[in-house]
Amino acid sequence: MKKVVACYKWVIDEADIRVEEKDHSLNFERAKYKISEYDRNAIEAGALLNEEKGCEFLAVTCGPNVEASLKDVLSRGPASISYVNEEWLADVDSSVTSKILAGIIKKIGNVDLVICGEGSSDDYSQQVGPRLAALLGYASVTFVNKLDITEEGIKVERKLEDGVEVLEVKGPAVVTVLPDINKPRIPSLKQILAAKKKPTEKISLKEIGFDINASQPKLKTLSISGTVMERKNMQINTDGLSIKDAALKLVKQLNADGSLA
């Protein structure tokens, strides 16, 4: 039986982030967390391999506050979740994340296939998958929109800009998946109830031999701000302007702005 692991990131729901008007800083006050969008596809891909191919399917994650994610993720298919929950992980780059995930995956042992989302909905660095492959010594396959596991190996389709590449991978691999690979499920009542009985394993950094001092993040975020489309907020039909005159005024304005060029 092949062993499949999906990695996921517990991210701030971007719908809840507000951009402050005065300085374009981000306000996270009302932000809730969610499973990173493409990681839902990674989890679903693992769940399907479990249901259709009988693969053993587990999930792993690391980050701050990830314990809040466990019930949600478990209701989407994995038999268990192994995780590292550390507050300081809020400010790390993908080099640190991938080292910790690799440590967890090594600890699980004998993993045939690791599935990641192509990129996370917050940073979208697209690095964790390939870095994991390097750290684990696995094959790395990106942009995957079809995935199957057979006796011969792992069969994937990569969706490229102007074509489709079909590959067969011998030996263990890390694949990063695109959102059109599947439609993530809405967990059913029974799946939600079953999730409450599934085991989770909290892993310490010591257990995976992770040395904080030797693995400081190499990137430091200096600032982060939203981009805001400035609007002119002009009202054309003022002072009882007739529709015809208003239309002419609008065309004139659009021409002046170069919008009709």
Binding site: I186, P187, S188, L189, I192, L193, K196
Partner: peptide, 9 residues
């Protein structure tokens, strides 16, 4: 208190 809550269903 011990009730099981199943949201999203």
């Amino acid at each position: 208190a011990g009730a099981i809550l199943a949201p999203g269903v």
